[in-house]
Nucleic acid binder design. Structure first.
Length: 560
RNA sequence: CGGGGUGUAGCGCAGUCUGGUUAGCGCACCUGCCUUGGGAGCAGGGGGUCGGAGGUUCGAAUCCUCUCACCCCGACCA
């Protein structure tokens, strides 16, 4: 394609409200524009990248026998009501009524509709397994869209669903998806890791997430380089650094206006790990006091699994329940349920003295208080790996894909059943598998860029090659550029010909910003010696070669 | 939903505190000349209901009230 005929609105400066690198660069380089919060327009270049990603996904999904189809985006409420999610899901679902007043919603995912289809059409074990997928628009009324195209309210997703006769067959479908996903993310040129994840509201037994390490990511994972442990911080266990093993008698200390661990620890000149944080949460079963060590963060999800749905107590509730204001709460002498992190079983700690402006030291489990013990802390950098005790590393990551074993969570309520060999009716065993193509693009930019712009991985770059005739008024330059352009195109190479009457500097800057992997630079000076320059965008390496060798050289670099 | 911030030309910003000519600057854009290996130079030019509504005032980008939008942190995230 010819640059002069393309719409590539590049900007010298990024918009002021962009924060993430991928957001800034994708806007600057003319790939996307924002319509409203969490709603993005994909410009021609951006759309080309999306199509390349989607085609890789298609090829790999088809390779494992998955079949592409297309589902409506607008759904009747009934199906969602049958699985209970119509009520479980809150404001995040876009809901509307049709002209007859019937409740409808915009699909945030397609478990219900896919299962509905299976329930209508599949009768026999002979028709199983089936894996269906689509690359479809999803809509979610996100509480906080952010980071450009990383978290939007409308986005395309590759979602596939497997229907199997039993758990063993589901495992096969699951493994096939792992195979496909590994190939997809490899081909897209991403650095990625697979981690254990929390099945959450999706239900089901097992789940993994594909994560691309990046500072722009919203998730955090704990990794062990020694034994390969890898898990989302939403569920990652860890072995905290051991507490100091000391024996102290209980003693009250005046700590005027010192409430937080930070304040009290600097006041008493003690490390955070010498403290015990006492936090009051409210549950359906009444108030619960949660205890973690001063250097730890309470993991509400872990606690929730023990005590049920919870929320933080208000200041008044703390006073009413414990008789003391927040900041001076201690675990002693309360007649309520106490759940404490296991690390507190050993050692003596400082915590609130249950009276204003006083803390107490020498608080020891079993002596001053009793508790239920559990892992209710967030894993942090340096904690021991739960598998091999080596220090864990925490990394920020972008979630680019996930795979879930759903079991019968959807097939049971929607009555998606089949008859087995003995004529017995059984629910289908399902799996659900997602990939966010726009997140692949964003992650690729986050992982591959420099001060000059994007360095696209070659398989998802908007063009394979850019030809830059530096002076379009120089006949020999243009003749050569046209010849190379034609020959590369004949070989199936996706070429951008910068035929604009612009100065050399502008062409260099734009080619770098847009991030095309290979640049063929045709300058008047080199051409006198029959030379052209081939530049590799990602390494910056540039070679001068005979003009007649340009096409062959470029083709060779693709077969590498 | 809680906290913070920002809305002035396509993009980036100044002006607002302390009200007062035709509201400025850089880049981009248009015309001409010149230039062609890293976002050139000279000359000329176009583009704004200062997010919106109401109010105060002789006079509002500027002060007051309400409202909308967007961004960031947190909560949430099937």
């Amino acid at each position: 394609m010819r640059y002069s005929q393309l719409f590539i609105p590049t900007l010298r400066q990024p918009p002021a409200d962009a924060e993430a690198v991928s957001h800034k660069l994708l806007v600057r380089a003319g790939f996307v524009r924002q319509l409203a919060a969490g709603l993005y327009i994909f410009l021609p270049l951006g759309w080309k990248v999306m199509e390349k990603i989607n085609n890789i996904i298609r090829e790999e999904m088809n390779r494992i026998g998955a079949q592409e189809l297309s589902m409506p985006v607008l759904h009747p409420a009934e199906v969602w009501q049958q699985t209970g999610r119509w009520d479980e899901i809150g404001d995040e679902m876009f809901r509307l009524k049709d002209r007859k007043g019937s409740d409808m919603c915009l699909g945030m995912t397609h478990e219900e509709i896919m299962t509905w289809l299976a329930s209508k059409e599949i009768r026999s074990y002979k028709e199983l397994p089936q894996t269906w997928y689509q690359i479809q628009t999803k809509l979610r009324d996100e509480a906080r869209p952010k980071s450009g195209i990383l978290r939007t309210r409308e986005f395309t997703m590759k979602d596939s669903y497997s229907f199997d006769a039993d758990e063993e067959a589901l495992q096969k479908s699951y493994d096939l998806h792992i195979e496909a996903y590994n190939r997809i993310f490899d081909r897209c040129g991403l650095d990625f890791i697979i981690v254990d994840s929390d099945p959450g509201m999706m239900g089901g037994a097992m789940a993994h997430e594909y994560m691309a390490p990046s500072e722009a990511g919203e998730d955090e994972v704990a990794l062990c380089t020694k034994c390969g442990f890898a898990a989302n911080l939403e569920l990652a266990g860890s072995v905290p650094l051991p507490s100091e093993d000391k024996e102290e008698a209980l003693e009250e200390i005046e700590t005027p206006e010192k409430r937080t661990v930070e304040e009290v620890s600097s006041f008493l000149k003690l490390k955070a790990m010498n403290f015990m944080k006492s936090l009051l949460v409210m549950t359906d079963g009444g108030p619960v006091l949660a205890l973690v060590r001063g250097d730890q963060k309470l993991h509400e999800h872990k606690l929730q699994k023990i005590v049920g749905t919870l929320r933080h107590a208000t200041k008044d509730e703390i006073k009413d329940t414990l008789g003391v204001e927040a900041g001076f709460i201690g675990p002693m002498g309360h007649d309520i349920r106490i759940v404490a992190d296991e690390v507190l079983q050993k050692g003596c700690y400082v915590s609130g003295a249950n009276k204003p402006h006083y803390h107490a030291r020498g608080i020891k489990a079993g002596r001053e208080f009793a508790a239920e013990w559990a892992d209710i802390h967030f894993a942090q950098e340096g904690d021991g790996c739960p598998g091999c005790k080596e220090p864990l590393h925490i990394k920020k990551v972008i979630e680019i894909g996930n795979i879930f074993k759903l079991g019968t969570k959807y097939s049971a309520p929607l009555n998606a059943v089949y008859l087995d060999e003995s004529g017995k009716e059984k629910p289908m065993i399902m799996g659900s598998y997602g990939i966010g193509p726009a997140r692949i693009a964003a992650a690729a930019v986050e992982q591959n860029n420099d001060d000059n712009g994007i360095k696209w991985p070659k398989n998802i770059a908007p063009f394979d090659v850019a030809i830059l005739p530096l002076n379009v008024k120089h006949d020999a330059s243009i003749e050569l550029a046209e010849r190379i352009y034609g020959e590369l195109r004949d070989k199936g190479v996706d070429v951008l010909m910068d035929d604009r009457d612009e100065r050399a500097g502008i062409k260099f800057k734009d080619a770098d910003l847009i991030g095309i992997p290979i640049h063929i630079i045709i300058g008047e000076r080199n051409l006198k010696e029959d030379l052209v320059e081939i530049k590799d965008r990602s390494t910056g390496d540039a070679d001068k070669i005979r003009s007649g060798d340009a096409v062959g050289s470029v083709l060779r670099s693709f077969s590498k």
